[in-house]
Computed example of a mutant assay.
Amino acid sequence: MQILDGKQTAAYYRSKVALKVEELKKNGIAAPRLAAFLIGDNIASAMYIKMKEKACAEVGILTRTHVLDAKTPEAEIIKLIKDENADPQTSGILVQLPLPKHYDEKKILSYIEPSKDADCFLPQNIGHMFLGDETTVLPCTPLGVMKLLKYYKIDVASKEVCIIGRSNIVGKPLAFLMLKDNATVTMCHSKTRDLKEVAKRADILVAAIGRAKMIDSSYVKPGAVVVDVGINHIEKPDGKHETCGDCDFESVSKIASYMTPVPGGVGPMTIAMVLYNTLYNYVLIKKLDIKMDIEP
């Protein structure tokens, strides 16, 4: 079994983004900026923002993070988003989710200018994706999964792909990207009958359900490629905490041909694609003659 190393792969794609940013600077063009909004005191959200800031710094993308407490009026958040929309150097805007429960996430996100949507969460950009318009960004985690497979030269065309999980952020857009690359896709969920039997047909199995270690070898066809998108934090019998995916790595790794670890699999790829989207937005907004050729 070969590990699909997300850290190594993300480092490759970050290096490609860094070269593009350097190309801009050599042509006298200022670097793009990612504006992030961290609202409330969610520890995991704060960690993710720091990881994105660090990754941006490594490739030369500027950052501006708005750290706001949970009592910040919605109107103030919206004004700050509008300010970033108006800033010509800001090409990526993201609001770290989840927000504190008293905020209207959909309303706040709707104020992001679609051309600066770093996560590809907005309906306009999702619509462009489903219509096959390539002059827009794609959702970061699904795009990261596709780039990871391409890095390891795993062709999805004509393969049977099973995606367990139908979220708007991962499952649904990933199914579309797989279809676009000519895979035959089955989407599974909590109401799927004979889930194990359906999953065991797959050449490529994607777990994105948010249930720690649910998928063991009984769901996997021998030799299948397994992509674990889940990230869960569980308490072990000794009281220590463990980060794990939706797959039981010890069980599945004995039967899969390729598999992503957790952590170190899809997570780093998601962050790398935030950088890619921020740069690609900048190229599109400013109509720059920069080719976004970052493939291996």
Score class of each variant (00 low, 15 high):
143 L>A: 12
53 E>N: 08
289 D>E: 12
6 G>D: 01
131 L>F: 14
245 G>L: 03
143 L>M: 13
116 K>S: 08
76 E>F: 08
169 I>E: 03
207 A>D: 08
143 L>N: 07
225 V>P: 05
75 A>F: 05
235 E>I: 14
145 V>A: 02
193 R>Y: 14
269 M>K: 03
17 V>K: 03
58 E>W: 01
55 A>N: 00
236 K>M: 15
198 V>R: 00
54 K>W: 11
49 I>A: 07
38 L>P: 01
159 K>A: 04
259 M>N: 12
70 A>V: 10
85 N>G: 07
156 V>I: 07
159 K>P: 14
29 I>K: 15
221 K>E: 04
290 I>Y: 08
85 N>V: 04
294 I>N: 07
253 S>V: 09
55 A>M: 03
4 L>A: 14
292 M>K: 02
70 A>H: 14
282 Y>T: 05
15 S>R: 13
291 K>I: 14
259 M>T: 08
99 L>D: 08
202 A>L: 07
130 F>A: 07
28 G>A: 11
172 K>Q: 09
43 I>E: 15
112 I>A: 06
167 S>Y: 02
17 V>R: 02
271 I>G: 03
88 P>D: 08
6 G>E: 04
209 I>E: 05
94 L>V: 05
151 Y>A: 07
83 D>R: 11
210 G>M: 10
288 L>T: 02
250 E>V: 14
201 R>S: 15
253 S>H: 10
251 S>G: 05
122 L>N: 09
203 D>E: 11
225 V>K: 10
87 D>P: 08
158 S>L: 09
288 L>C: 05
212 A>I: 15
